[in-house]
Design a protein around this nucleic acid. Sequence first.
DNA 1: AGCACA
Length: 225
Amino acid sequence: MLTADIPPNQSIYIQNINEKINKEELKRSLYCLFSNFGRILDVIALKTPKLRGQAWVVFTEVTAASNAVRQMQNFPFYDKPMRIQYAKSKSDCVTKAEGTFVTREKKIKQEEKVERKRQAGESQQPNSYNGAATQNGRPVPSGQDTMPPNNILFIQNLPVETTSMMLQLLFKQYPGFKEIRMIEAKPGIAFVEYEDDVQSSIAMEALQGFKITPQNPMVVSFAKK
DNA sequence: AGCACA
Protein backbone atom coordinates (compact mmCIF):
# COMPACT_ATOMS: atom_id res chain seq x y z
CA MET A 1 0.00 0.00 0.00
CA LEU A 2 1.53 3.24 -1.13
CA THR A 3 1.44 6.07 1.33
CA ALA A 4 0.27 8.30 -1.51
CA ASP A 5 -3.03 6.42 -1.47
CA ILE A 6 -4.03 8.06 1.76
CA PRO A 7 -5.84 11.34 1.23
CA PRO A 8 -4.60 14.47 3.00
CA ASN A 9 -5.63 14.73 6.60
CA GLN A 10 -4.91 17.32 9.25
CA SER A 11 -3.59 14.46 11.39
CA ILE A 12 -0.34 12.72 10.58
CA TYR A 13 0.60 9.17 11.44
CA ILE A 14 4.21 8.56 12.41
CA GLN A 15 5.91 5.21 12.66
CA ASN A 16 9.36 3.79 13.25
CA ILE A 17 9.65 5.73 16.49
CA ASN A 18 12.25 4.59 18.98
CA GLU A 19 10.24 2.47 21.42
CA LYS A 20 12.55 3.12 24.34
CA ILE A 21 11.37 6.68 24.77
CA ASN A 22 8.86 7.10 27.50
CA LYS A 23 5.42 8.23 26.47
CA GLU A 24 5.28 11.65 28.04
CA GLU A 25 8.70 12.65 26.81
CA LEU A 26 7.81 11.35 23.38
CA LYS A 27 4.68 13.45 23.23
CA ARG A 28 6.53 16.55 24.38
CA SER A 29 9.25 16.03 21.81
CA LEU A 30 6.79 15.47 19.01
CA TYR A 31 4.93 18.55 20.06
CA CYS A 32 8.09 20.64 19.99
CA LEU A 33 9.29 19.28 16.71
CA PHE A 34 6.02 19.64 14.84
CA SER A 35 4.82 22.92 16.29
CA ASN A 36 7.07 24.53 13.71
CA PHE A 37 4.53 23.62 11.06
CA GLY A 38 1.41 25.02 12.64
CA ARG A 39 -0.83 24.89 15.62
CA ILE A 40 -1.18 21.44 17.15
CA LEU A 41 -4.44 20.27 18.67
CA ASP A 42 -3.27 16.98 20.08
CA VAL A 43 -0.50 14.41 20.14
CA ILE A 44 -1.43 10.76 20.66
CA ALA A 45 1.01 8.02 21.60
CA LEU A 46 0.23 4.68 23.21
CA LYS A 47 2.62 2.03 24.43
CA THR A 48 0.30 -0.93 23.89
CA PRO A 49 1.90 -3.83 21.98
CA LYS A 50 0.03 -2.92 18.85
CA LEU A 51 0.69 0.80 19.03
CA ARG A 52 4.16 1.35 20.37
CA GLY A 53 6.57 2.97 17.98
CA GLN A 54 3.76 5.01 16.46
CA ALA A 55 2.13 8.34 17.14
CA TRP A 56 -0.34 10.84 15.76
CA VAL A 57 0.01 14.58 15.61
CA VAL A 58 -3.16 16.55 14.98
CA PHE A 59 -2.84 19.95 13.35
CA THR A 60 -5.52 22.59 12.95
CA GLU A 61 -4.69 22.86 9.25
CA VAL A 62 -4.24 20.25 6.54
CA THR A 63 -1.51 22.41 4.97
CA ALA A 64 0.52 22.17 8.16
CA ALA A 65 0.17 18.39 8.06
CA SER A 66 1.25 18.33 4.41
CA ASN A 67 4.37 20.34 5.13
CA ALA A 68 5.16 18.11 8.08
CA VAL A 69 4.77 14.93 6.02
CA ARG A 70 7.16 16.23 3.39
CA GLN A 71 9.71 18.10 5.43
CA MET A 72 10.04 15.77 8.38
CA GLN A 73 10.05 12.57 6.34
CA ASN A 74 12.96 10.41 7.57
CA PHE A 75 13.93 13.00 10.16
CA PRO A 76 16.33 11.26 12.60
CA PHE A 77 14.26 11.25 15.75
CA TYR A 78 15.95 9.55 18.70
CA ASP A 79 18.25 7.87 16.19
CA LYS A 80 15.51 6.44 14.00
CA PRO A 81 14.19 7.96 10.79
CA MET A 82 10.56 8.95 11.14
CA ARG A 83 8.13 7.49 8.64
CA ILE A 84 5.25 9.88 8.22
CA GLN A 85 1.93 9.56 6.41
CA TYR A 86 -1.44 11.19 6.65
CA ALA A 87 -3.62 9.49 9.22
CA LYS A 88 -6.31 7.23 7.79
CA SER A 89 -9.13 8.79 9.74
CA LYS A 90 -10.01 11.92 11.60
CA SER A 91 -8.81 12.25 15.15
CA ASP A 92 -11.35 12.28 17.92
CA CYS A 93 -10.49 15.82 18.91
CA VAL A 94 -11.39 16.89 15.39
CA THR A 95 -14.71 15.08 15.14
CA LYS A 96 -15.55 16.29 18.59
CA ALA A 97 -14.95 19.85 17.47
CA GLU A 98 -17.07 19.24 14.38
CA GLY A 99 -19.79 17.62 16.42
CA THR A 100 -19.54 14.40 14.39
CA PHE A 101 -17.81 12.35 17.03
CA VAL A 102 -19.27 8.88 17.57
CA THR A 103 -18.17 6.62 20.35
CA ARG A 104 -16.46 3.42 19.31
CA GLU A 105 -18.36 0.17 19.86
CA LYS A 106 -16.19 -1.02 22.68
CA LYS A 107 -16.89 2.14 24.62
CA ILE A 108 -20.64 1.99 24.28
CA LYS A 109 -20.86 1.06 27.92
CA GLN A 110 -19.60 4.49 28.79
CA GLU A 111 -22.23 6.48 26.94
CA GLU A 112 -23.35 8.16 30.13
CA LYS A 113 -20.00 9.80 30.58
CA VAL A 114 -20.06 11.00 27.00
CA GLU A 115 -23.42 12.62 27.69
CA ARG A 116 -22.00 14.43 30.65
CA LYS A 117 -19.13 15.68 28.53
CA ARG A 118 -21.54 16.86 25.85
CA GLN A 119 -23.42 18.88 28.40
CA ALA A 120 -20.23 20.58 29.44
CA GLY A 121 -20.64 22.06 25.96
CA GLU A 122 -17.03 22.61 25.14
CA SER A 123 -16.78 23.69 21.51
CA GLN A 124 -13.17 22.66 21.49
CA GLN A 125 -10.55 21.90 24.07
CA PRO A 126 -7.23 22.25 22.26
CA ASN A 127 -3.96 20.75 23.26
CA SER A 128 -3.50 19.36 26.71
CA TYR A 129 -0.01 20.72 27.18
CA ASN A 130 0.99 23.03 29.95
CA GLY A 131 4.18 24.57 28.67
CA ALA A 132 3.12 24.63 25.04
CA ALA A 133 4.13 27.21 22.46
CA THR A 134 0.63 28.57 22.32
CA GLN A 135 -1.20 31.00 24.51
CA ASN A 136 -4.97 31.08 24.19
CA GLY A 137 -4.47 29.19 20.98
CA ARG A 138 -2.18 31.79 19.48
CA PRO A 139 1.35 30.84 18.58
CA VAL A 140 3.96 32.70 20.55
CA PRO A 141 5.40 35.28 18.16
CA SER A 142 8.96 34.20 17.74
CA GLY A 143 9.66 34.39 14.04
CA GLN A 144 11.22 30.93 13.69
CA ASP A 145 8.32 29.30 11.97
CA THR A 146 10.16 28.99 8.69
CA MET A 147 13.47 27.75 10.06
CA PRO A 148 14.03 23.99 9.98
CA PRO A 149 15.02 22.25 13.21
CA ASN A 150 18.64 22.67 14.23
CA ASN A 151 20.60 21.56 17.27
CA ILE A 152 21.77 25.17 17.61
CA LEU A 153 19.37 27.78 18.92
CA PHE A 154 19.48 31.46 18.09
CA ILE A 155 18.46 33.75 20.97
CA GLN A 156 17.36 37.33 20.41
CA ASN A 157 16.07 40.25 22.43
CA LEU A 158 18.38 39.68 25.36
CA PRO A 159 19.16 42.64 27.59
CA VAL A 160 22.59 43.96 26.65
CA GLU A 161 23.99 43.13 30.07
CA THR A 162 23.30 39.41 29.65
CA THR A 163 26.34 37.23 30.23
CA SER A 164 26.96 33.72 29.01
CA MET A 165 26.97 32.58 32.65
CA MET A 166 23.41 33.79 33.00
CA LEU A 167 22.31 32.01 29.87
CA GLN A 168 24.13 28.86 30.88
CA LEU A 169 22.17 28.81 34.12
CA LEU A 170 18.96 28.82 32.12
CA PHE A 171 19.81 26.53 29.25
CA LYS A 172 21.85 23.89 31.02
CA GLN A 173 18.71 22.70 32.80
CA TYR A 174 17.64 20.97 29.61
CA PRO A 175 19.20 17.68 28.53
CA GLY A 176 21.78 17.66 25.78
CA PHE A 177 23.11 21.14 26.57
CA LYS A 178 26.59 21.74 25.16
CA GLU A 179 27.52 25.41 25.12
CA ILE A 180 26.60 29.06 24.89
CA ARG A 181 28.25 31.29 22.34
CA MET A 182 28.01 35.06 22.46
CA ILE A 183 29.58 37.60 20.17
CA GLU A 184 31.12 40.66 21.84
CA ALA A 185 30.37 42.85 18.87
CA LYS A 186 26.70 41.86 18.84
CA PRO A 187 24.98 42.38 22.17
CA GLY A 188 21.47 41.04 22.65
CA ILE A 189 21.93 37.76 20.85
CA ALA A 190 23.43 34.36 21.59
CA PHE A 191 23.75 30.88 20.21
CA VAL A 192 23.05 27.83 22.33
CA GLU A 193 24.14 24.42 21.20
CA TYR A 194 22.55 21.09 22.10
CA GLU A 195 23.43 17.53 21.18
CA ASP A 196 20.56 17.23 18.75
CA ASP A 197 17.47 18.88 17.33
CA VAL A 198 15.07 17.18 19.67
CA GLN A 199 16.81 18.46 22.74
CA SER A 200 17.21 21.96 21.34
CA SER A 201 13.49 21.96 20.50
CA ILE A 202 12.59 21.09 24.05
CA ALA A 203 14.76 23.88 25.44
CA MET A 204 13.30 26.29 22.90
CA GLU A 205 9.80 25.43 23.95
CA ALA A 206 10.62 25.75 27.62
CA LEU A 207 12.45 29.07 27.46
CA GLN A 208 10.57 30.79 24.68
CA GLY A 209 9.60 34.23 25.95
CA PHE A 210 11.54 33.86 29.18
CA LYS A 211 12.16 37.30 30.67
CA ILE A 212 15.60 38.09 32.03
CA THR A 213 14.22 41.58 32.60
CA PRO A 214 10.54 42.50 32.32
CA GLN A 215 11.26 44.33 29.08
CA ASN A 216 13.10 41.47 27.41
CA PRO A 217 11.13 38.34 26.61
CA MET A 218 13.70 36.20 24.84
CA VAL A 219 12.98 35.11 21.31
CA VAL A 220 14.31 31.65 20.60
CA SER A 221 14.52 30.19 17.12
CA PHE A 222 16.56 27.57 15.34
CA ALA A 223 19.83 28.94 14.01
CA LYS A 224 20.32 29.01 10.28
CA LYS A 225 22.23 26.02 9.01
C1' DA B 1 4.91 -3.86 10.33
C1' DG B 2 1.54 -2.32 13.32
C1' DC B 3 -4.08 3.65 12.12
C1' DA B 4 -5.97 5.54 17.87
C1' DC B 5 -7.87 8.76 20.77
C1' DA B 6 -6.27 5.59 28.89
